[in-house]
């Protein structure tokens, strides 16, 4: 059995809520984004297959909060994979940077900052990456609007 089992995850993360497989393996939801660095260390130490590749890192606007979403996978067996989620409060959208754990998180975090305005403490170079440098606002927030945007009539 090469996939990560729910029992394995419940044993490794007693505090977190562990859900059945979604689109990308079992879903582990942390209580706060500040727990992310420790959780990543635990995933890297998971037996028998460490989840040591960050395949995707993005965010959602879930209305009340932002949710950071990571897809972790084992470099040895791609069937061992997990979705890791952590909420970020909208009042103070900030989270610890994961660049120390995964170098690839650098540009992912810049994209999340660009689109959602979540700040990452400890990021080496947190600038906009896709939008023009002088852009105001964060367009993937649900409440985003600007004078160029045209709403679909009737939607």
């Amino acid at each position: 059995m090469s996939a990560v089992t729910l029992e394995q995850l419940r044993a490794a993360f007693p505090q977190a809520s562990v859900g059945a497989a979604g689109g990308f393996g079992p879903v582990v939801t942390l209580g706060a984004a500040t727990e992310l660095p420790a959780a990543l260390a635990a995933f890297k130490a998971l037996k028998p297959l460490p989840l040591d590749v960050c395949e995707d890192y993005t965010a959602l606007d879930a209305g009340e909060v932002f949710i950071l979403v990571l897809h972790l996978v084992s470099g040895t067996d791609v069937r061992a994979r997990v979705t890791l989620k952590a909420p970020v409060p909208k009042a103070a959208p900030a989270a610890p940077s994961l660049v120390a754990q995964f170098g690839i998180a650098d540009w992912y975090e810049r994209e999340i900052f660009d689109m959602f305005g979540i700040r990452f403490h400890g990021h080496p170079d947190l600038r906009r990456i896709l939008l023009p440098e002088d852009w105001t606002g964060y367009p993937l927030r649900k409440d985003y609007t600007d004078d160029k945007l045209l709403k679909r009539p009737g939607a």
């Binding site: 939008l131 367009p139 985003y144 600007d146 160029k148 945007l149 045209l150 709403k151 679909r152 009539p153 939607a155």
Partner: peptide
């Protein structure tokens, strides 16, 4: 991308 796009020139 005519509607609901923040980035597209129409």
């Amino acid at each position: 991308f005519y509607y609901d796009s923040y980035g597209t020139v129409r």
